[in-house]
Every structure is written in structure tokens, then in C-alpha cells.
Simulated scan of single mutants.
Amino acid sequence: MGLFNRKRPGPDEPPDETLPELTVSGAQRLRDLVRGSMATSGYEVTVYAGHVEDADGRQFGLGSLARRLADPRIAGKHWPQIIEDHVRRLLASVDGPDEFDVPTEDLLGRTYLRLYEASSLPDNGWWSYGREALPGVLELLALDLPDSVATFNDEQVGKHGHHRLRAAGLANLRREEADERATFDGVEILVGSMFMASTILVLRDVILRTTGEAHLPNGVLVAAPFRHQLMYHVPRDAQVIPALNAMAGNAAAGYDTEVGPLTPHVYWWFDGALQQITNRDDTGAIEIRVEGGFGEVLSRLVPGL
């Protein structure tokens, strides 16, 4: 998963208000193509700015498609085929057998805790059980299927039991391993499945498996910019400064350009709690906030800073 620069709209073609990854005309083309593809499959839908809704009230978000099509490597002529394939897979999961209508034991091995950017979810009240794990990021339960991932709704969680499902979701996250690993400026960069970023919820286990560190007296700097990537640095000395700077820039870039964005920020983890230490202003400039527990750690590791 490389980091690449997204095409920026020219001055005469502003970004769409709801799907800012695309221009106004590009976002409208996406909506038109989705409407046509759904109609070809026998679904008449009402098109809204960020989602479409069928006659049964089911909502299908357009955000993930917009982010994928914003990739400058994808030519406009390929949009219809990409959207058709996406819609076909989506409808197959909707019209197929109910994957949740099985004994709870049959679900536990495939259930994961997964993080979702809250603004990317339809506002339909299906996930009131969700916990805000990070500002603007929800922790939900997901079922891993052969070709996709399905999210448990309130009814399904009630049927199978939230406590039992969450315990299974954590256990399965602890077994998640990266497909690729790199180290840059003291930062461990892990890339893997769509559950990789969600392993921030079991960070201690990830670090123990990756670099073998069990004692973390200075906490951990961590970022989960998009669903396939997790970055972390264990502060030990003055290298914390270049590591933090590298993480701040790469987290913002990954969030802005990759599919499945979660959060552009860097956090300081200590004993299971997460403190946000970066912020972005309206221009996109990154601010690092040295305060609280992290401020004390930084003062100890870099005296006179």
C-alpha cells in the first residue's frame, strides 16, 4: 500500500461538498453510474449526496467508491467497470443467505473488532452498540466473509450477545499478523488485512509479537491512518522527535490518499489509554501538542527541549 498524491481539482473545478475526494462533476458522474448499475441489477434507488437508498430503506454509502476512484492511477474510462463490479459484490452480499442466521459458535472464529470512521457510516441508527474508540472513530463488530466483510447491526448483536462477540473479536485481532513490515526513523510500519489498523485495540500484543517488548514505561506513539496500516514507535530516547515527525506526516498522507481512511492523527498510548497528540488546522497544517502524560515523557527523554 504505497502513499501517493491524490489529484487535486483545478481552480475551475472545486471539490464536491459531500465527496471531497472527487470534483463536483466527478462526484455526480459517480452517483449517475451507481444509479444506472443498480437499475440494471433490478434495484431502483434514490440518490443522495453521499449514499443511495433502495425501496426497503437500505442505505449504501458512496464514500469508499469515491476514495477508490480518486486514485490518479485509475483512468476515467475504467470507472463504469469498477462501479459495476462493486455494485455486483454489494448486492450479492445483500441478496445472499443471511450469514448471521447461524448458531453463535459458528460466528466466533470469524468475528473481529473493527474500527470505522464514523462519518463514513450511514446515519441509520443500526449500530448504537458502537463505542467511540478514538475521536470520530467507532469500534464495531465485523464478520469476515470469503469476499467481503459484514458489520453486525444492533439486532444481530442482541441475538448473539455483545459480550461474547466482543471477546471473540479481541481474540481474533490478537492473532492478526502483518503481511509487510518496514522500519523508518525508528517507526515500525505494519501493513496487512483490512483489520490491521484495528489492532491498535490490542497494541500491547502487536508490539510483543513484532519487536518483543513487554515493558513500555514511556508508552507508545501509534497511528492507524487507514484500515490496512498501523504505525508505532516505542519512545526510549531523543529519537522520539524524528519518529514523531515522521509519523505525523505519514499518518496524514495515508489518511488523505488511501482507501478506508480512519484517522490522520498520532496518539500516545499508555496502559491501554490513548491521548491524541497531533491536530490539523483548516489549511491541513499539522500541529503537535506536547501536554499531559506525553509531555512528561518527552521532558524526561529530551531534557531541555
Score class of each variant (00 low, 15 high):
E177C: 06
L140N: 07
A214G: 15
L143D: 04
V297S: 01
L143K: 01
L216D: 04
P146N: 01
G2I: 11
A178G: 02
L216K: 06
I241D: 00
E99Q: 12
E84K: 14
A252N: 05
I286F: 02
F270W: 07
E139D: 13
R209H: 11
L170A: 12
E17N: 12
R58T: 13
G42I: 06
E188I: 14
N124H: 13
S193H: 02
W269T: 06
V220I: 09
P122E: 03
L33I: 15
G130L: 14
V45E: 00
D56P: 04
T263C: 07
Q276S: 01
R181I: 09
I189S: 05
V24C: 04
W126F: 14
R300D: 09
S128N: 14
D281L: 05
R164W: 07
A248L: 04
D12R: 10
G125D: 03
D85Y: 11
W126L: 15
V52A: 06
A66S: 09
A27Q: 02
V137L: 09
D32C: 12
I200D: 00
R166V: 07
A197H: 01
V34P: 01
Y116G: 12
R8A: 15
Y112D: 00
N245Q: 10
M231S: 10
R166C: 14
S128Y: 10
E99N: 11
V187W: 03
R31I: 01
L203M: 10
T151E: 06
A39T: 08
D98R: 12
R236H: 08
G292M: 05
E84H: 13
P9A: 08
A133L: 12
D106C: 06
L262Y: 03
R110S: 06
A182D: 14
R166H: 13
R31E: 05
D32A: 15
S148N: 14
R236F: 01
F270N: 10
Q59N: 05
T199E: 02
F184Y: 13
E296W: 03
G219C: 03
L19E: 13
L65N: 01
V45L: 02
E180C: 08
L221Y: 02
S128I: 10
R166Y: 09
D98H: 09
S64P: 14
G36P: 02
L170S: 11
I207G: 00
T263E: 00
G42R: 01
N124E: 10
A252Q: 07
S193F: 03
I200R: 03
A214K: 11
E44S: 11
I277L: 02
L274M: 12
Q239A: 11
A252F: 07
L190G: 00
